[in-house]
Amino acid sequence: MKALVLNGPNINLLGLREPQIYGSATYEDLTTLCERAGAEVGFSEVTCFQSNHEGSLVDRIQEAHGAVDGIVINPAAYTHTSIAILDALKAVGLPAVEVHISDVDAREDFRQVSYAGRACFARVAGEGIEGYRHALELLAERLR
């Protein structure tokens, strides 16, 4: 099994960006966690990708078709705005899990809307970067 872990805007600034909300772990810590956690639950390959650009995320989702078995996605700010990401996820038809580092349900009202989540079979939020481990576990269970 192969998984793609996608991260949207500002996730590259983990450790610097609002540590009271997102914690002190860095993006490098996050990618290391995903690779290790993925191997532990049976993925032969976990590829992590981060972009601040919506089109780059859409391109990676499209490229995932036929190349990976499932997607873990933190669209970050695009969660609440991007129909393009939703449409790409629906188009490729791969099982996907939405993940958020913070508890988006306890934050601002505008964060309550998730377009990408409409194409995902599960959502993990508020578990810090460990939420990615949980998301990979859910994805692996779904693929078995």
Rank of each mutant, 00 (worst) to 15 (best):
20 Q>K: 11
20 Q>C: 04
20 Q>D: 14
21 I>P: 03
21 I>A: 07
22 Y>H: 05
24 S>R: 12
26 T>K: 06
28 E>L: 14
30 L>E: 02
31 T>E: 09
31 T>G: 02
32 T>D: 02
32 T>A: 07
35 E>H: 06
36 R>T: 13
37 A>Y: 06
37 A>V: 10
38 G>T: 07
38 G>A: 05
39 A>C: 10
41 V>T: 10
42 G>Q: 09
42 G>L: 09
44 S>Q: 09
45 E>T: 15
45 E>W: 14
47 T>F: 14
49 F>T: 07
50 Q>H: 15
51 S>H: 12
51 S>M: 13
52 N>Y: 13
53 H>I: 12
54 E>A: 03
54 E>I: 05
58 V>A: 09
59 D>Q: 12
60 R>A: 03
60 R>E: 08
62 Q>G: 07
62 Q>N: 15
64 A>V: 08
66 G>R: 09
67 A>S: 10
67 A>M: 05
73 I>L: 09
74 N>E: 01
75 P>H: 05
76 A>S: 11
78 Y>S: 00
79 T>F: 00
79 T>L: 00
80 H>M: 10
82 S>L: 03
83 I>G: 00
83 I>Y: 08
84 A>K: 12
85 I>V: 06
86 L>S: 01
86 L>Y: 14
87 D>H: 11
88 A>E: 05
89 L>N: 01
91 A>C: 05
92 V>A: 03
92 V>M: 03
92 V>K: 01
92 V>Q: 02
92 V>N: 02
93 G>E: 05
93 G>Q: 07
94 L>Y: 14
94 L>W: 14
94 L>R: 11
97 V>K: 00
97 V>M: 04
97 V>T: 03
99 V>M: 04
99 V>A: 02
100 H>Q: 09
101 I>D: 01
106 A>Y: 08
108 E>R: 08
108 E>T: 12
110 F>D: 03
112 Q>M: 13
113 V>C: 09
113 V>W: 12
115 Y>S: 01
116 A>D: 07
116 A>L: 05
117 G>W: 04
118 R>M: 15
118 R>W: 15
119 A>S: 13
121 F>W: 15
122 A>M: 13
123 R>D: 04
124 V>N: 08
126 G>V: 15
128 G>L: 10
128 G>R: 11
129 I>T: 05
130 E>P: 01
130 E>K: 11
131 G>D: 08
133 R>I: 14
135 A>F: 12
135 A>R: 03
136 L>V: 13
136 L>Q: 10
136 L>Y: 13
